[in-house]
Amino acid sequence: MTTITYIEHDGTEHVVEAENDSSVMRGAVDNGIPGIDADCGGECSCATCHVIVTSNWMEVVGRPNDTEESMLDLNPEREPNSRLSCQIVVSDALDGLIVNLPEFQM
């Protein structure tokens, strides 16, 4: 189990024990955290699981690959640390990870 903190746009924090090898998206959805829609169910093809990774975690989490980049790129409100959370695999290395949720998913 790996501890992940999701911070909603209004500042509400949710601390979750996520299962290794699942995704940061699943960690939120399975624990009923609002603000991640995940319409496509984790296929990297809807971009409604958008999160903004806190800067000091970016190096560990890594950059999006090309497919993810092409989906993220459709969002005019993306930020430099934006990721699609269904594409971030949970592992021990991410223990303590903090991600921010955007105001809206689109």
Binding site: D39, C40, G41, S45, A47, T48, L74, F104
Partner: peptide, 18 residues
């Protein structure tokens, strides 16, 4: 309920869905 195909998926996913 939002796991449906009506808006398509991928890079052409409906721009007006929201």
């Amino acid at each position: 309920a939002r796991h449906h195909l009506s808006f398509g998926f991928g890079i052409h996913r409906c721009m007006g869905n929201r």
